[in-house]
Simulated scan of single mutants.
Amino acid sequence: MDKLKVTYEVMLGLAAEMVWDDAVRKYRSVELYKEIDQALASGDEKAFRHLTDELKSLG
């Protein structure tokens, strides 16, 4: 029974980590879109390219 409890706790931990990672990825994606818009508005091509590369890497 103890082995099942440990397994259950590990699975809960993994599920929590997956939810956390997804939330962080979504937040960063929203922030990147804002920063990309600002780079476009100011004509900053270097920042635009850097930010879009980071956005692509988020998957």
Results as ranks from 00 to 15, higher is better:
E54C: 04
W20M: 09
L58M: 09
A47T: 11
E35Q: 01
E31F: 02
D37L: 09
D44T: 00
L40W: 00
A39Y: 05
E9T: 10
L40R: 05
S29A: 09
M1L: 12
K34A: 04
M1C: 12
K26Q: 08
A39E: 05
I36M: 04
V19M: 14
E31L: 02
R28Y: 08
S57Q: 13
D21T: 08
A39V: 06
K3Q: 14
T52G: 04
A47K: 15
V10D: 13
V6P: 02
E35Y: 00
E54R: 15
M11W: 06
Y8G: 04
V10N: 13
T7I: 15
I36Q: 06
T52F: 08
F48K: 08
K5L: 13
R28K: 11
G43C: 02
E35T: 00
F48M: 05
S57H: 08
L12I: 09
V19L: 14
D21P: 01
A47L: 09
L58F: 05
G59H: 15
L51C: 06
D22E: 07
D37N: 06
K56C: 05
K34D: 06
Y8T: 10
L32K: 05
K46H: 03
E45V: 09
V19G: 04
L14V: 06
A15H: 04
G13F: 11
S29R: 04
S29L: 10
G13E: 13
G13S: 13
E31M: 05
T7M: 15
K56V: 11
D53E: 14
R49D: 09
R28P: 03
R49Y: 07
V30F: 11
G43N: 05
V6A: 13
S57M: 10
Q38P: 00
H50F: 05
T7H: 14
K46E: 03
V10G: 07
M11P: 00
S42Q: 02
Y8W: 15
R49K: 10
K34V: 02
V6M: 07
E17V: 10
L32M: 02
R28S: 08
F48I: 00
K3F: 10
M18W: 14
A41Y: 07
A16H: 05
Y8H: 12
L32R: 05
D44H: 01
Y8E: 11
D37W: 07
M11D: 08
T52C: 09
G13P: 08
F48N: 03
A47P: 06
A23G: 08
R28T: 10
Y27H: 02
M18R: 12
A41K: 15
V19C: 08
E35A: 00
A47E: 10
D2E: 12
S29Y: 11
Y27D: 03
A16E: 08
D37E: 13
D2G: 12
Y33L: 14
L12A: 09
L55R: 10
F48V: 00
V30Q: 10
D53S: 13
R25E: 07
V24Q: 05
V24S: 02
L14R: 06
E31P: 00
L4T: 11
G59E: 15
A15Q: 05
R28G: 03
K5M: 10
K34G: 02
M1S: 11
G43F: 00
D2P: 07
L12W: 09
V10Y: 11
L4Q: 14
A39P: 04
L4K: 13
H50R: 07
K26P: 00
M18D: 12
L14P: 01
S57A: 14
H50S: 01
M11L: 14
Q38Y: 02
D53T: 14
Y33E: 12
D53Q: 15
T7F: 15
